[in-house]
Amino acid sequence: MSESKVNSLGIIGMGLMGGAVMKMTGAGLGWDADAARCVNAPAASDVFESCDGVFLCLPNSDVVRAVLGAATLRPGQIIMDTTTGDPREMAAIGAELLARGVHYLDATVSGSSAQLLQQDVLVMVGGDAAVFERCRDWFASFAREVIHVGPCGSGAKMKLVTNLVLGLNRAALAEGLAFAQQLDLDLTQTLDVLRRSMAYSRIMDTKGEKMITQDFTPQAKLSQHLKDVRLMQAASKLPLPLSETHRRLLEKAEALGYGEADNSAVIQAILEP
C-alpha cells in the first residue's frame, strides 16, 4: 500500500450514508446485512480481505465492534469509521486495532447522505494525523471540508457536539412552525420570514419544507438522532437540560411511529396529542 494514500477502498454498511460514500468515492466493494444492497461482496470478508481502506457506515458502536470482531484484518490496513458512536468505545477500538498494526480513524460526518452526494458535508476525523493525511483524498471526494480534530475518539466527540446544536435547531424550527400554525399564519411565508430573520439556521433550508409538507422520506432517521441524544447525555458530566427535553420529544415521536421517518418528523411530537 502506498504511504501517501489508500489504494483500494471498500464499504461496510450500504444504507443511506454507505451508498452515498460508495457513489462519491468510486469504491468497488460494498457489503451490507441486507443482501440486496451488497455490491460485488456477498460477504463482509470479501471487503476486508480485498481492500486496503475500509469505510464503516454502521448504526452504532456495538455493531462496529461486532463487525470488526468477526473480520480478518491485516497490519497496515486502514479502517475509517463514519458511525456516530460512543467516543469512549471508539477510542478503545482504535487502541485495540493499533496493537494489531491496524489503523483506525473515527471519521464522523456532519450532514446528511443527500448533502454528501452534493459534496456538502464536513468530516471530523480522530486518529493518527499521518494516517489521516494518507486518506485525505478519499474524504475530499465527498466532503466540502475535512478537519483532523485529535486522537481516536475525537471525531465522535465533535460529532456529538455538532449534533447537539443541530438537533436543537431542528426542534426549535419544529416548535416555531407549530406555533405559527396555531396562530393561523401561512407556514410557507413563515419559513421565508424565518430565513430572512436573525433566527436563521441552515436547518431551515433542509428541513423546513419537509415539516410544512409532512414529507418525512428519510434523509436521516429520527431514531438515529434519538440514539445520538442518549449518547450525548451519557458522555456529559454536566446536565444538558435542552437535550433532555429534546430526548423526550424524540421518544414521543418514536412512540407515534416516526422512528424510521426523517428526523424532521420531530414536529409531529408537538402537533399530535
Score class of each variant (00 low, 15 high):
Ser2Thr: 11
Ser4Arg: 03
Val6His: 00
Val6Ser: 02
Val6Ile: 10
Asn7Lys: 09
Ile11Gln: 01
Gly13Thr: 01
Met17Ser: 02
Met22Tyr: 00
Gly26Pro: 14
Gly26Ala: 14
Gly28Ile: 02
Gly28Ala: 07
Asp32Gly: 01
Asp34Leu: 05
Asn40Phe: 01
Pro42Val: 05
Phe48Val: 09
Phe48Gln: 12
Phe48Trp: 09
Gly53Met: 01
Phe55Ser: 08
Cys57Lys: 04
Ala66Phe: 00
Val67Gln: 11
Val67Pro: 06
Ala70Cys: 09
Ala70Asn: 14
Thr72Asn: 04
Gln77Pro: 08
Ile78Ala: 01
Ile79His: 00
Met80Thr: 10
Asp86Ala: 05
Arg88Leu: 15
Glu89Tyr: 06
Ala91Pro: 05
Ala91Val: 07
Ala92Arg: 11
Ala95Leu: 10
Ala99Phe: 10
Ala99Cys: 12
Asp106Glu: 12
Ala107Tyr: 01
Ala107Val: 07
Ala107Lys: 05
Val109Ile: 15
Gly111Glu: 11
Gln115Lys: 15
Leu117Lys: 07
Val123Trp: 01
Val125Glu: 11
Gly126Asp: 12
Gly126Arg: 03
Phe132Asn: 02
Cys135Asp: 07
Cys135Gly: 09
Asp137Ala: 14
Phe142Met: 14
Glu145Ile: 08
Val146Ile: 11
His148Pro: 10
Cys152Met: 04
Ser154Tyr: 00
Asn163Trp: 00
Val165Leu: 08
Ala172Phe: 05
Ala172Ile: 04
Glu175Asn: 09
Gly176Ser: 09
Gly176Pro: 05
Leu177Trp: 01
Gln181Leu: 12
Gln181Thr: 09
Gln181Met: 08
Leu183Met: 11
Thr190Ile: 13
Val193Ile: 15
Val193Lys: 10
Tyr200Ile: 06
Arg202Thr: 13
Ile203Met: 15
Lys207Arg: 15
Met211Gly: 11
Ile212Arg: 06
Thr213Trp: 04
Gln214His: 14
Phe216Thr: 06
Phe216Ser: 08
Pro218Asn: 02
Ala220Thr: 09
Ser223Val: 12
His225Thr: 10
Leu226Ala: 06
Asp228Glu: 13
Val229Asp: 03
Ala234Gly: 12
Ala235Trp: 03
Ser236Gln: 13
Lys237Gln: 04
Lys237Arg: 06
Lys237Thr: 04
Pro241Tyr: 03
Arg247Gln: 15
Tyr258Trp: 06
Gly259Phe: 03
Gly259Leu: 10
Gly259Ala: 12
Asp262Arg: 05
Asp262Glu: 12
Ser264Gly: 14
Val266Ile: 15
Ile267Arg: 05
Ala269Asn: 07
Leu271Lys: 06
